[in-house]
């Protein structure tokens, strides 16, 4: 079986919420293939964060099942513990969770809790620091002496050092400047290329989604509203807009062109596609450039 995560009929209601209030998750069905990069989009309150917290047993479903690596994570205590190590969660603004004396100790915190040998912990800390692009010299420093972007990468290294099969990044570029954002995105790409891990990326930035993701899951009012390839999802730009979501800038430009009456297809989401499409149109209308 090649899927690493399978959720079926997943329902979740936060305790102490009014019976009349809609559940946080409703009948969510989700399959994540091994090694893919799945983007999860949806506006604030759509259930994105609640969903990913189901995947490593931080929240227990009210109904339905979660299978990670072929096992029902709620089967027994052992499977629950395993799920926490199989799926690593990197929350929003993870740098707020740095707490140790040194960057090295902070990154080592997770592997230590897994009960690994000292040598193995050391290897993992080095590997994680390398993957996120943190200079070795920074490892001995206090995490609080790092710059904003470095802190973020140190915190991400802490999750990577646990070497989970699936890593969930919740808005990893939020609040960073363009350079800091690019660093994080490059890091995601490198992590993916070198470790072949499965990555779930929660993002509001549709340009990043268009650039990085294989497939996209759209959450809306606690439900999995759409699930498909990037092309399939952004071809439904009008529906996404109705849900209050944005689409990539180029997609919006092409939507405007369609409204003006230009014969361009939907589902254009990168600059390259846009250029290709306009060249095709120019050739078709039979005029020299």
């Amino acid at each position: 079986m090649s899927s690493v995560i399978e959720c079926d009929k997943l329902c979740f209601r936060y305790p102490n919420t009014a019976k009349t209030a809609p559940p946080a998750l409703e009948q969510v069905k989700l399959t994540v293939e091994r090694g893919e990069l799945l983007a999860i989009i949806g506006h604030t309150g759509s259930g994105k964060s609640t969903l990913v917290q189901q995947l490593n047993a931080l929240l227990k479903p009210t109904q339905g099942t979660v299978f990670v690596d072929g096992k029902n994570i709620w089967e027994n205590k052992k499977t629950v513990r395993e799920a926490r190590f199989l799926v690593g969660l990197c929350f929003q603004y993870p740098e707020y969770q740095l707490f140790e004396e040194t960057v090295e100790k902070d990154i080592a915190f997770g592997p230590k809790n897994m009960g690994l040998e000292a040598d193995e912990i050391k290897r993992r800390v080095c590997r994680a620091a390398e993957l996120v692009g943190l200079d070795k010299l920074l490892l001995k420093k206090s995490p609080f002496d790092l710059s904003g972007g470095e802190k973020r990468r140190a915190a991400i290294a802490g999750v990577m050092a646990m070497e989970p099969q699936v890593i969930v990044f919740d808005e990893p570029t939020a609040g960073l400047d363009p350079r800091g954002k690019e660093h994080i995105l490059q890091m995601l790409l490198r992590c993916r290329a070198e470790t072949k891990r499965t990555i779930l990326l929660i993002s509001h930035n549709m340009e990043d989604v268009a650039r990085l993701a294989d497939r996209v899951l759209v959450m809306h009012q606690g439900k999995a509203a759409m699930h498909g390839t990037v092309e399939q999802i952004f071809a439904r730009a009008e529906e996404l807009t109705e849900m209050g979501l944005t689409v990539p800038c180029v997609t919006r430009i092409f939507l405007a062109l369609r409204r003006m009456g230009l014969a361009v297809p939907p589902g254009i989401f990168t600059l390259e596609q846009g250029l290709r499409e306009l060249l095709r149109l120019a050739a078709e209308s039979g005029c020299a450039l």
Partner: peptide, 26 residues
Amino acid sequence: FAQKLRAHFPALPEDILTEEDCARAI
């Protein structure tokens, strides 16, 4: 995007900044 297009469509104006500018110019 406008910059990328300009290599093939030199008639595209230089001062495109917003989506509306871009769509209208195209």
